[in-house]
Design a protein around this nucleic acid. Structure first.
Lengths: 160, 160
DNA sequence: TATTGTTATACTCTATAACTATA
DNA sequence: TATAGTTATAGAGTATAACAATA
């Protein structure tokens, strides 16, 4: 008997949404959205990318990404340059500011992953669905530190 | 050394996005979006839900869901009734039309899951990240049938 | 007063297509 | 002609807050 809540797409989506939600809230104080983080982390791993490649790597649709890169350029996080030898493509890179920002954020991402994975690393992955359900639960332990980060953000906002 | 492309959130998101994209295209001919499918499948599993519960079950934010339910009610897929004994809550149910539609779609969802899982069921899940990468690849085998479904949809659209 | 749900606003995302520039 | 990217548009998503009705 089919059950949505025991199907793989459902469990994947649920963990993905929850994780994205929590991580977004955690980094909001840095004035960065999750898609922006993905772009910066992708460029940190592999710089000098064309728009199409970056879209594939980040799972962000190309026209969305084109505008996002525009926003990020205005924020001074990335550069976008037309190539001389092939002027219909474009090279996207992290700026120094973007690089130092993403290097602040990566430890947070690593911490998230550690917490998410903690519950099952010791006992091994025996069943994908069970594991996803466990990850979902263990993400809850991140709530307190996220709440604190949000409180700090609000405090600094009031000051501004 | 941190690599975005080897991080759990990245792999989860990539598989989730890809799967959602493919499934959306597959069911587009039924005039149903993925969030609508999620709502119907959730109600099929557990009927007579309140809005808040349904939001939790589907990972859809409540105000979004409130409007989505409005759309689905107009399409005749669900009913929404204020309770007499607690008139600030609402009970959402599948209509006969919604039920028969979701029962057409569930086999498609099951097929998706079968294909996604095929690669690793025989050898067992030993590593979550590897498994997610494998699922991503095996989803590609769904492309031909989806393309065919899309072609059919376009053909029937031209007729209309 | 707290809870449940609806509505409004601003902003972002997707899908799609039109368009520009280049190969 | 095909490709890479940008821009425009429509529809739908999120976050947030204001709001109404009810407990």
């Amino acid at each position: 008997m089919y059950q949505l809540t025991n199907s793989l797409p459902y469990l994947l989506n649920r963990v993905g949404v929850r994780m994205g939600e929590l991580f977004s809230r955690r980094i909001a104080g840095y004035d960065v959205t999750l898609p922006m983080y993905r772009v910066m982390a992708a460029l940190w791993e592999q710089g000098d990318q064309r728009l199409g490649d970056l879209a594939g790597m980040t799972s962000i649709e190309m026209s969305t990404l084109s505008r996002l890169i525009g926003t990020m350029k205005r924020k001074g996080l990335v550069s976008r340059t037309r190539l001389k030898d092939n002027a219909r493509t474009v090279a996207i890179n992290l700026t120094a500011k973007g690089k130092s920002l993403v290097e602040e954020l990566i430890p947070i991402a690593v911490h998230f992953e550690t917490v998410a994975v903690r519950e099952f690393t010791t006992k091994g992955v025996t069943d994908l669905k069970t594991t996803l359900a466990e990850i979902y639960v263990s993400l809850g332990t991140l709530e307190p530190e996220i709440a604190e980060a949000e409180a700090q953000r609000r405090a600094s906002k009031r000051q501004a």
